[in-house]
Design a protein around this nucleic acid. Structure first.
Lengths: 197, 197
DNA sequence: CGGTACAGACTAACCAGTCGGTATGTGTAA
DNA sequence: TTACACATACCGACTGGTTAGTCTGTACCG
């Protein structure tokens, strides 16, 4: 029997990543010791450094996972065969839902970027920029088509919307009055209303 | 000659606070050592612990200063003798300008809350809530008067706007194409456009 | 003379990463 | 089929470095 699945059925690297995600979100990156992570995952440091090069590496993996997921989803919505208003609305609402469904990831993402090594930070920023540009293209398309107001630069609109998405991890509580979908609908509405010509 | 003004004319506590603010914003709270702070302020640990109870205390002072400033400004704009649309617009734009003018403070505010002791964290949150409620009252007033749409709960509108304000420290660069006032005008416009009935 | 305003050496604790060691599976050749 | 080599998957004690906060001492002021 391989050690990789000792304890429960989940492979060790994934257990480590899950434990790290939760702890980073709860206590912050610097306040979480490697010892805590390995204990939460039911292994030891040997295991962690067998699969990951450093604590920093672990954080980077969290980022990579989130970025991959969001990019995929945006591609799906942006590339759909629908009018641009609907594509933007769906994409804007979806990113809200997935963010709420992974609030830990979101918390880490916006709070711990600066803990990444400069090199990895740059990499994540580049990936992030690609995402933003894809989103901005949608808005510009609508502006050119005349269905969105051109009063505000598309760039700023993107930061505007992602500001509110970013902020979700600060105020949203699963036991609050609004479901993820309701919040998403509201935020997407606000965006589209702000964009009315 | 009191030591309090050795070096330059600024009193030591303020020099310490200024150095801490800059360093916390640049490197984050946990990555900034007390030694670095006192060196940047041109004093020693003895001085710091003479004026502040702990490193945590220093961070708390940064928060207190920001909160006091913002609350004062909001009170001014919200209490003016103007129609509610103008009061909201002015308040929304002003918080953007002052945030940009104190980007270091904003960065610390949203990134380092969780580094405060639970007790101080609670205190800051309570203060923050008061601020939000004052802002929300403005929106509700406009909704009741029929000049703002009631499609979205006022609560969510507040988080929506402050999401974009919060986000400023992530993307705004003083050497970018937009002046603080221009950004403020755009963001206030977006808010009011989203609120059109 | 007593209080304020520091200076700076010191301590106790913690922590990321290392490294030598062990157990289990796998391919291969006699 | 067995025996041995080798790789993978860990274990956990240890190290070197760092850090917040303390404490004793000192200089100046009223």
């Amino acid at each position: 029997m391989p050690r990789t699945t000792d304890g429960d059925g989940t492979p060790v690297p994934q257990r480590l990543l899950a434990a790290a995600t939760r702890l980073f979100a709860e206590q912050g990156y610097d306040r979480t010791s490697v010892q805590e992570i390995v204990e939460a995952a039911g292994v030891t440091k040997g295991a962690l450094y067998h699969y990951f090069g450093s604590k920093d590496d672990l954080l980077h993996e969290v980022y990579a996972r989130v970025l991959r997921l969001q990019q995929e989803r945006l591609d799906t919505f942006a590339g759909a065969d629908e009018p641009v208003e609907k594509r933007l609305r769906d994409a804007a609402a979806d990113v809200v839902v997935t963010t709420i469904e992974n609030l830990d990831d979101a918390m880490i993402f916006f709070r711990s970027m600066h803990h990444l090594s400069p090199e990895k930070n740059k990499q994540v920023r580049a990936e992030r920029r690609r995402y933003h540009e894809r989103f901005r293209a949608l808005i510009e398309e609508g502006q050119k088509a005349g269905v969105f107001s051109t009063a505000t630069p598309a760039d700023l609109i993107v930061d505007y919307h992602f500001g509110s998405v970013h902020h979700l991890s600060t105020w949203y509580r699963p036991d609050g009055p609004l479901s993820p979908q309701e919040v998403a609908d509201h935020l997407a509405d606000l965006l589209l209303r702000a964009l009315r010509p």
